[in-house]
């Protein structure tokens, strides 16, 4: 899908990647020279449960096109149960997004272990395609008259 100004729409994805699995998986994808779209900006978190729902909403309401959370497979959490919390939170967040009028597909949870570089690349490719078909985050194009612009910390 193209944006209003005719440019090809490239979705921006924010990733919360677990240090013990998905982050290493992404790394592996990199060193294995696996091709995947460059649309994701990764934040390394010590556990996928570190992706506080408030931060996920901050990203989405701030105009990010999609949020990707990568955690350890069930039963493999470094902290025993962090990924189970994440799973419940994502279920809640998707409902919340739906109620507010944001497509729940803009949030994706994947289990990616440190050895699954190919799976990571595939997941990002798929998510990027999905977001392209959804189009830009509607909040990005909403004008907020009277807001402070260009918040540049001096």
């Amino acid at each position: 899908m193209d944006t209003a100004d005719g440019k090809r729409f490239e979705p921006k994805i924010l990733g919360f990647l677990c240090n013990w699995c998905c982050y290493a998986g992404a790394d592996l994808a990199g060193v294995s020279r696996l091709q995947y779209p460059p649309n994701i900006r990764a934040i390394r978190v010590m556990c996928s449960a570190g992706a506080d729902p408030a931060y996920v909403m901050k990203a989405l309401l701030g105009g990010v096109d999609g949020v990707f959370i990568g955690g350890c497979h069930p039963g493999e959490c470094h902290y025993t149960s962090g990924n189970y919390y994440t799973r419940r939170r994502v279920a809640m967040l998707k409902k919340l997004m739906e109620i507010l009028g944001l497509e729940p597909e803009r949030l994706r949870l994947e289990w990616v272990s440190a050895s699954e570089g190919a799976l990571f690349a595939e997941a990002i490719k798929d998510f990027t395609e999905k977001l392209k078909s959804l189009g830009p985050n509607p909040l990005k194009v909403k004008k907020r008259p009277g807001a402070v612009v260009g918040v540049k910390r001096s």
């Binding site: 189970y84 279920a91 998707k94 994706r108």
Partner: peptide, 19 residues
């Protein structure tokens, strides 16, 4: 409250789509 507890089996059976 549901998001402040865990259950290994939950959600696997409720069919929530995480994609």
């Amino acid at each position: 409250p549901p998001v402040s507890m865990v259950d290994e089996e939950d959600l696997l059976k409720t069919g929530v789509d995480f994609g």
